[in-house]
Computed example of a mutant assay.
Amino acid sequence: MIEAAMIWNEPNNKSHWDPELDPDWALFARMASLAGAAIRAEDARLPRVLGGISPIDPVFMWNMRNRGVLDHVDAVAVHGFPLDWNLWRIEEWPEKIEEIRGVTDLPIWVAEVGVSSFGADEVQAWGVERTAGLLRGRAPRVHWYSLFDLPRAWGATTRHKEAEGSSYYRHFHMGLIRADGTPKPALDAFARHVDVFGLVQWFHFEDPRLDDAVAWLRRLGVRHLRTGLSWADSFRPGADAFFDRMMSALDAFEVTVTFCFTPEHRGLAPHHTSPPVDPEEFAAFCARMIRRYGNGAG
Results as ranks from 00 to 15, higher is better:
A44Q: 11
F60C: 03
R45E: 15
L50K: 00
M31K: 06
N63C: 14
I39N: 04
A75G: 12
D43S: 13
D24Q: 11
A29I: 10
N63R: 14
M64Q: 13
G36W: 01
G36E: 05
A29N: 10
L70K: 02
F60H: 03
G51I: 01
L27W: 00
G51D: 04
D71A: 15
W62N: 09
G51N: 05
W62S: 13
V59P: 02
V59R: 08
F60L: 06
L46V: 12
G52P: 09
V49E: 00
D43R: 07
R48D: 02
S54C: 08
D43M: 09
D74P: 12
L46D: 03
R45I: 05
W25G: 02
P47C: 08
D71T: 11
P47K: 02
A32L: 01
I39A: 08
A29Q: 09
N66H: 10
F60N: 00
A35K: 00
S33H: 03
P47Y: 02
D57A: 14
G68D: 08
D57G: 14
D74T: 05
P58G: 07
F28K: 07
R65C: 08
D24M: 10
V69F: 11
G68S: 06
V69E: 07
A41C: 09
V59K: 05
W62L: 14
L46Q: 06
I56Y: 06
D43T: 09
N63W: 08
D22I: 13
D43K: 06
P58T: 04
R45N: 13
P47H: 05
A44F: 12
V49D: 01
M64G: 06
